[in-house]
Every structure is written in C-alpha cells, then in structure tokens.
Design a protein around this nucleic acid. Sequence first.
DNA 1: ATACGACCTCCAGCTACTGTAGGAGCAAGC
DNA 2: GCTTGCTCCTACAGTAGCTGGAGGTCGTAT
Lengths: 138, 138
Amino acid sequence: MAEAAHLAIGDLARLTGTKVNTIRFYEEGGLLPRAERTAAGRRVYRDADTRRLAFIRQSRSLGFPLDAVRELLTLADDANQPCEAVDRIARVHLAEIDRKIANLSALRSELDRVIGSCRQGTVADCKIIETLGPRAIF
Amino acid sequence: MAEAAHLAIGDLARLTGTKVNTIRFYEEGGLLPRAERTAAGRRVYRDADTRRLAFIRQSRSLGFPLDAVRELLTLADDANQPCEAVDRIARVHLAEIDRKIANLSALRSELDRVIGSCRQGTVADCKIIETLGPRAIF
DNA sequence: ATACGACCTCCAGCTACTGTAGGAGCAAGC
DNA sequence: GCTTGCTCCTACAGTAGCTGGAGGTCGTAT
C-alpha cells in the first residue's frame, strides 16, 4: 500500500522506459485513455495506466503494429473474450514476420553473391556496379 | 538505331517498372538529374536516364537505402574510382540486413513461444495476454 | 526573486514513396 | 474546329511510429 497512486508523465516514462513524447503520442492515438489533468493542465496517471502502457510496450517489443496493439488491448480489457481472437492476431503477426525474414534472406543471398564477385579493381570492371547496371532492359 | 531517343515520363515509367510519381521523386531528391522540358514543360528523357533509373531500381531492389544509392551512382559515374568504395557500401548494407534478420528471428522465436502456450480458453487465462501484461515492472 | 526542471501544445522531420486535387497539353476522331 | 480521353504538370497530404524542438507555463528550492 501507500505507493505513489498519482504519477506525473515523467514518472510514468521512467517506470516504463518510454519517452514522454511517446506517451503523449499513445494518448493521441487512443492507446492510452486521455489522462486526467491537474488544475494547471498536467497529466496525472494511476497504476492502471502504468499497466496499460507496459502492455503496449511489451506488445510493441514483440513487433505488433499499433493497430494490432489496439485490438489486443480491447480484447485484454474483457476477460470473457475468447482467447481465440488473441491467438489469431498473434499468428497473423507471426506470418508477417516470417514473410519479412524470407524477403531479407533472399536479399541477403543475392547481395552476398554480388559482393563475392568483386575483384577489387576499379569501378570500370567492378562486378557489383555491373550487377546494378541495366541488363534485363537492354 | 532509330529507336525512341526521347521518352516521356510515362514511357520511362513503363520501361523501368517505376511509377511516374516515383521518377519525379527521384528527380526531386537528386538521384536523377533534372530532366529537360519541352516548351510545354513536360519532362523529356534519353537513354542515359533510362540506364540511370534502372541502376537505381536495381539497387533499391537489393535494399540499398537512397543515401547508399546516391553514393553508388557517384562512384559508378567515374570508371576510375576504386571498386573498394563500392564493396564497402555493399558490405555495410549486408551487415545491416544481417542485423535485421537476427532481430526478426529473435522476435519470431519469442512470438512462437508465446503463441504455443495458448490453450484456447478465454482472455482471463490467455497465456498470450499474460505474457504481454506487466511482469518485470511489478 | 529567481533559477531550474518538468510540464504544456503544436509542429516539423525521419524513409521511400503513393495517391490525389486541380489544372493544362496533345492527338485522334468527327 | 471541337470534343473526348489520355498524359502530363505542380503541390500537397498521407503512410508507421515515433522523435525532437520551439516557445511558453508551472512548481519548487534557494
């Protein structure tokens, strides 16, 4: 008990490892509810906000886009929702990550092949430049 | 001989598989030189422009950022430059791709682990939501 | 009283484009 | 010579997810 029930935005930032501007950005985007304000207009946060922000950050660190985070938050807010929807969002995201890895791996192979062909002369006979030059077109 | 020496922007777009707006964007960003204009102000392109744009697109398809493409173009423009600079740019890019793949792979493992723990109940005991919730903080 | 930090709102910038609005030009058909 | 339809022009807003800064206010410690 008796812990700080009211946090300023800077405290929340420090607690969650989030930049102050980012917290405001999340409020703006509806991920965090509009915070109460003091008479002077300063944001005031409670424990529930800390938990919510931590949830957001954890989701983001797993790469979920903000739209997905929004959906996850909505689901998490209602304990009676079926877990299935959560699972689906996560699987879609996993598929997306797999797609990105596949793309990058293909890119990596190609680039590696190109680099391997370089024989350290001048640009005139550089295989890398040659590869980048137009071939398919002419 | 006798091929179209003067192309309109739409022709160049079709030839290189680039959108018209993207070509203008490259001109704006100095990747393509400012094209000559007709009396009516329309851009006119020659073969050299086609080659340059093809080079840009090929570089981009290998994932080089525009800054790197700019450097590669500068190097490619002078056949006497040592190939070493080209090689260096390519290797830096390769390292960056490797970094991204490593990050995504780590993300993928973590996400896969999280998804695997889901037992298809309600959100109340959903392991995914639980994982996303604050643990380290409280 | 004043200095300092933390806070406020609003806005520009990052990457690499993409799409749209609002207009003008051009070639073909009638 | 006029209309139709396509292409072109400039200029700007929007995408994702923040980040940083300007210019101003507030709170507190000295």
